[in-house]
Design a protein around this nucleic acid. Structure first.
Length: 438
RNA sequence: CGGGGCGUGGCGCAGCCUGGUAGCGCGCCUGUUUUGGGUACAGGAGGCCCCCGGUUCGAGUCCGGGCGCCCCGACCA
C-alpha cells in the first residue's frame, strides 16, 4: 500500500477521550474510530490486524478438528426462553422488536442457537464429538464501556462449542481447546497464561481464563515464567489420543498460575524466585465445561450406545478477537507507538523514502515496493524524514526499510527492527530476505 | 446504576465567573524554504460554539430541560 493513497489517518495529538495506551495508540495510528460509546469502525489497517488475528485463531481451531460455522448476529427470543436464559441474562442483552412485534435480540453469545441446530441434526452418539465455532460480532450492552475496543459493547469474538457423549470425552475436547489456544497465542506473539477460573453463574466445574500480562489488566496475576518459554507449536500432541491430551494437560497444570482471587502464597513460594511473574492481566479468552446445562434445558438428546436418549455434554470456548487487538498493544508498545508482533502487524514493513523526488531513492523504493506491495506500506509522501520516522514508529510495523540518498547510491538501505531498535546496513536483497522471512 | 467531569473549525484547548464583532497551537490548502527524527516564513480555507426552550435590546457566556461522550466504583470476552 502506498501511504499517499491510503486511508490511514494518523494523529499527532491524542484525542481526549482516550485514557489508556492501547486506546490512544489505536486512534493515533488510524486503526479505529469511535461511532458510539463502545462501538467502533475499523479502518483499513485496524481491519488487517483483526483479520490476521482471526486467521490464526481459525487455523489453530481447524488444526484440532473444530469446524467453522457462521451464526446470525440477530437471534430469536424464543430460543432463549426455552433455555430459561431470556429472563436470567439481564440488561446486558440488547433486546429488539421487529415490525411484527416479534421479540429478537442481538446475540451476546450463542449457546442456544448452536445447541438448537446441533440438536436438530445429530441423532446418534456415533456422530459425536463435534466442535463447532464461529468468529462473529457480539453485542453486550455493558453498563460502562471503556478502554476502547478492550471493553466495547460490540466486539468480535471467536466462540466455540463442544458436544460430547460423556464427561470423559468432554474433558478431551476441553483439553484440545486449551492446546489450540496456547498455540494461537504463541503464534500471535503474546503469551496468554491459562488460569483456573470460577465457573460463575454458567455452572460446571472445569474452567480456565487466559490472561495477557499488561499493566492495565483488570486482575492481579501470578504465574511461573516457565510457561512463557514452552513451545506448544512443536509439542507433538495427538489430539485424537486421550492419553496425549492428558499428558499435555498435566504438563500445563504443573506450573503455577493464578489470578489474585485464587492465589496461594504457599504454592507460590515453591516457584523459583527468578521464574515468578507477577503483575496485572487482561483476560483475552475463557474456556469452560458446563455439562448438560443447555442440552437438558432445551431437551436435546442423541441415541446412546444402548439406544436410550442421552443429553450431550457441552463446553464453551471463547477468544476475544477485537479485545486482543487492544491487549496486544497494551502488552507491546513504547512511548513512540505500537510494536506489532510479526504475525499480527498490518504490514510487514514500512518503506521510508527519505527523499521523494530524488531519482535514485524513488527508483530503489519503487523496485522494493513492487516485490510485495500488499506486505509493505510505502511512505511515498513528500514529507520530512522526521515525520516519516515518527509515523512508522507510531504504526508499529515490525521493520522499517529506510531509503536515503546516501545509501541508495550504493544500493544500500537501512533496516530497522521496531521492537529492538537494531539497525542494519544492507543491500536491497538482503533487506528483502530478512523482512519477508520473518 | 451511584459518584465526578466534559461537549467551541479535523485534533488539543482558551473564552463562560463579570452577556456586546469567536480566538490560540497543531493539522489541512498555496507558494518559497528545508531534506536522516514532526523545518522555517508568507498567504489561505474551514465554525447551526451539542440540541430545544427561557431571560435579555443582545446569549458560546446566564437559567431550565434534553442528548452525547469520558473517568472512578459494582459487573464482564
Amino acid at each position: 500500500m502506498r501511504l499517499s493513497r491510503s486511508f490511514l489517518p494518523t494523529l499527532k495529538e491524542t484525542p481526549s477521550d482516550a485514557q489508556i495506551a492501547s486506546h490512544r495508540l489505536m486512534l493515533r495510528a488510524g486503526l479505529v474510530r469511535q461511532t458510539a460509546s463502545g462501538i467502533y469502525t475499523w479502518l483499513p489497517a485496524g481491519l488487517k490486524v483483526l483479520r490476521n488475528i482471526a486467521n490464526i485463531v481459525r487455523e489453530e481451531q481447524d488444526r484440532v478438528g473444530a469446524q467453522e460455522v457462521l451464526m446470525a448476529t440477530i437471534q430469536s427470543a424464543e430460543l432463549w426462553k426455552r433455555s430459561g436464559r431470556y429472563d436470567a441474562y439481564g440488561p446486558e442483552m440488547l433486546r429488539i422488536k421487529d415490525r411484527h412485534e416479534r421479540e429478537l435480540l442481538y446475540g451476546p453469545t450463542n449457546e442456544e442457537v448452536i445447541t438448537d441446530v446441533v440438536g436438530q441434526e445429530l441423532k446418534s452418539y456415533k456422530e459425536l464429538p463435534q466442535i463447532l465455532y464461529q468468529i462473529q460480532w457480539k453485542f453486550r450492552d455493558e453498563i460502562r464501556p471503556r478502554f476502547g475496543v478492550m471493553r466495547g459493547r460490540e466486539f468480535y469474538m471467536k466462540d466455540g462449542y463442544g458436544f460430547d457423549i460423556d464427561y470423559k470425552s468432554a474433558v478431551d475436547t476441553y483439553r484440545k481447546m486449551m492446546l489450540s489456544y496456547l498455540r494461537t497465542f504463541q503464534r500471535l506473539g503474546v503469551r496468554a497464561v491459562p488460569m483456573v477460573a470460577d465457573t460463575g453463574p454458567i455452572g460446571g466445574d472445569l474452567s480456565h481464563e487466559f490472561l495477557i500480562l499488561a499493566p492495565t489488566g483488570e486482575s492481579g496475576v501470578f504465574y511461573d515464567g516457565a510457561l512463557d518459554t514452552l513451545d506448544w507449536l512443536a509439542d507433538p500432541v495427538d489430539v485424537d489420543k486421550s492419553e496425549d491430551l492428558e499428558k499435555f494437560f498435566k504438563n500445563v497444570s504443573s506450573y503455577y498460575a493464578a489470578t489474585d482471587e485464587k492465589h496461594d502464597e504457599k504454592a507460590w513460594e515453591s516457584v523459583p524466585a527468578e521464574r515468578r511473574r507477577e503483575g496485572r492481566g487482561i483476560e483475552v479468552a475463557h474456556i469452560f465445561y458446563f455439562g448438560t446445562k443447555y442440552t437438558k434445558s432445551m431437551d436435546i438428546t442423541v441415541a446412546g450406545p444402548d439406544g436410550t436418549p442421552v443429553h450431550p455434554e457441552m463446553g464453551s470456548y471463547g477468544i476475544g478477537v477485537s479485545r486482543l487487538v487492544g491487549a496486544i498493544i497494551e502488552a507491546s508498545h513504547d512511548d513512540a507507538g505500537i510494536i506489532w508482533p510479526d504475525n499480527v502487524a498490518p504490514f510487514k514493513a514500512a518503506i521510508l523514502n527519505l527523499k521523494v523526488g530524488d531519482e535514485t531513492c524513488d527508483t530503489l523504493c519503487e523496485a522494493l515496493y513492487n516485490k510485495a506491495p500488499e506486505q509493505f506500506l510505502y511512505d511515498d509522501r513528500s514529507d520530512r524524514a522526521g515525520a516519516k520516522f515518527a509515523d512508522a514508529d507510531l504504526m508499529g510495523h515490525p521493520w522499517q526499510i529506510i531509503v536515503g540518498p546516501r545509501g541508495a547510491k550504493e544500493g544500500k538501505v537501512e533496516l530497522k527492527r521496531r521492537a529492538t531498535g537494531e539497525r542494519f546496513e544492507l543491500t536491497v536483497d538482503e533487506a528483502l530476505a530478512k523482512v519477508l522471512s520473518a
